[in-house]
């Protein structure tokens, strides 16, 4: 047992992702599935794919964050780990933030790193903009996982809370989705969009942990 419950929650989330059932690969598979199905669904015209590609990847990233979130706090409530962490007097918000961050590291960051490959599948031009986009996906993904974590923490005691998480998280995802899409469009008004995206992510990092912490204390009651 490690000294700090925050560190222990972080480590546990990381090891959990790689242990049994390939949990960390699930969002990746989801992301890849969406990327492969889209050209089959909307047609293979290169110009169309190039136009919709970045947006599709944003949607896939948001949905991929949702598919794994259902279990992020539920397991801790069921096996009593949450109670133990809270008994040490550690702030619930920091434990929740550590878990959401670990979750982003194992499920969100890999998607962002692989995004250039998927972008190429969508006929994007191979230039440095792919790396910029990678950074934007990583930044936006962080906000997705923190807001999604709020939904997950609130429905931690609810069986089959997946639909509930989506319903709660959807409105909270809106600013990130819009700023992200604007930042990538390169159109008029897009120059400040990466900064707005960064600001909305910072906002999520500042606010979401407290909501998650309050929800976790509720779940532990």
């Amino acid at each position: 047992m490690s000294a700090s419950p925050i560190l222990s929650a972080f480590r546990q989330a990381l090891t959990e992702a790689w242990a049994g059932g390939a949990g960390a690969l699930m969002p990746l598979g989801f992301f890849a599935g969406a990327a492969v199905l889209v050209p089959l669904g909307i047609g293979t015209d290169p110009d169309t794919l190039r136009a919709v590609g970045p947006g599709i990847l944003w949607v896939a990233l948001a949905l991929a964050s949702l598919v794994t979130l259902e279990r992020i706090f539920q397991a801790d409530v069921e096996d009593g780990a949450l109670d133990l962490w809270l008994q040490t007097g550690a702030p619930a918000s920091m434990i929740a933030a550590a878990k959401a961050f670990a979750h982003w590291l194992t499920a969100g960051l890999p998607l962002a790193i692989l995004s250039p490959i998927f972008a190429l599948m969508f006929q994007a031009k191979a230039d440095t903009s792919l790396l910029t986009h990678m950074g934007l996906y990583a930044l936006g993904g962080l906000a997705f996982f923190f807001w999604g974590g709020v939904g997950a923490a609130l429905s931690a005691t609810v069986r089959r809370g997946g639909l509930l998480i989506s319903l709660i998280a959807l409105p909270l995802y809106v600013p990130t989705a819009i700023f992200g899409a604007l930042a990538m469009s390169g159109g008029p008004g897009s120059t400040g969009a990466p900064l707005f995206l960064a600001a909305s992510t910072l906002f999520a990092l500042a606010v979401a942990p407290f909501a998650m912490g309050a929800a976790l204390r509720l779940a532990a009651d």
Partner: peptide, 26 residues
């Protein structure tokens, strides 16, 4: 529990409404 969870969500939603409004205003 319903009251507590609902209150947390309503407050999180309320502080997000200005941000949502601002983002769609762009």
């Amino acid at each position: 529990k319903a009251a507590r969870a609902g209150a947390i969500l309503a407050m999180v939603g309320a502080i997000n409404v200005p941000l949502i409004k601002f983002s769609v205003d762009l």
